[in-house]
Design a protein around this nucleic acid. Sequence first.
DNA 1: GTCTATAGTCGGATAGAC
DNA 2: GTCTATCCGACTATAGAC
Lengths: 227, 227
Amino acid sequence: MSRSDGQAWEAASGYRKGEAARARILEAALSAFGANGFKGATTRQIAEEAGVNLPALKYYFGGKEGLYLACAEEIVERYRRQMLGPILEAQAGLEADGSPAQARASLKIVIAALADQMMESREAEAWTGFVLREMAEPGPAFDILYGQVWAPGLDLIAYLIGVARGEGVSRKAARIEALLLVSSLSAFSTARPMSLKYLAWPDAGGERFARVMRIVDERIDGVTGRS
Amino acid sequence: MSRSDGQAWEAASGYRKGEAARARILEAALSAFGANGFKGATTRQIAEEAGVNLPALKYYFGGKEGLYLACAEEIVERYRRQMLGPILEAQAGLEADGSPAQARASLKIVIAALADQMMESREAEAWTGFVLREMAEPGPAFDILYGQVWAPGLDLIAYLIGVARGEGVSRKAARIEALLLVSSLSAFSTARPMSLKYLAWPDAGGERFARVMRIVDERIDGVTGRS
DNA sequence: GTCTATAGTCGGATAGAC
DNA sequence: GTCTATCCGACTATAGAC
């Protein structure tokens, strides 16, 4: 990996400037790939936005595809950083009280955190775009994102749905419910431009976000079997 | 428009062969744009798949963007052709019996037809891909698709939700519910590759499609206020 | 390590023969 | 109307100076 090479020469020479350049390139790439996809984003645009010249991308990441994969790894870290708190909170609640009602509450915590990333957070916009695009059209980063982001997240949600509904739901059915629930959030991430126009909303933040989330919580009540 | 130009010389000369070439190009373009988007699709690839040479695209459609817009118009027609029956059925049911229960039944008919297009139909795969992509990243075809496909469809669904729930729901809330409901179907259209992997399903057709739809129908019961 | 300069490729568009 | 041949711009990648 180009990353460990970079660390190797840094350790040897004590050179530090490179790490800042590397971070800027990664940030610019995340933004560009998230907005335009692998093919749509150009290395020139990324280099310019990062304030480096073109060959720097090859130097640090081996090329366009290496940069794309590095973005995926960065996304996994950011996803974990953002979701770790809510996930631990949800798990702690369930360990203290394994009731269906608590599972429903934990589910709402997890979905709210996910929705916050997908719908509201401006900083998360780049990486959610990247992730959603890769799920629709599997590319070089599909496996890592599936294994590190989607599968664990969906497993947790499906598990919480199963507990909340009691024994009356099969494992597969809970997984389908989880997919439908998470996908419904795409109304305000992937499909946001259309949704905002349809609701005549300038954005989906603040009170508007809260309003959507109240409705999503009602849907969760429905999924988990409360009238 | 290049289209009316084409019709003009046909009417004058009685020449017919061109219309077949035009249709082949449109079909190939629909498939290519649906799979790869405007930038991702190449005119060379479209021309080759259609069995024509490159300048034919300019001749018939004025260029890449003209071809893209022609695809959008074609999609509107196909959407209407596919959805007209179910929409009329839903409206007829509601006119005969304006009860919440009937509205719920009509809603299930409309959603099932929509899901069939988005999830199961192989022929619809190209145009649903095109539509979903354009909604996420507004391009030249956004306005026509929004006005002719999304807005009318969502209006009908939001209206049916409102009737099914009685007077207890605001117009805006019904619209948000409609967006969330329709978006949940994207689990098996936009996000299909990931969903199929997660469920360990080879495809989402036949009995598997029916299984998902049974769960979607339960969600509709939840949205429309049945326990 | 970082840069300039350029090689090599590919895509959209079009001129002009027939 | 349909074709071949070609132009021009933009892209990725890389050689080589410092």
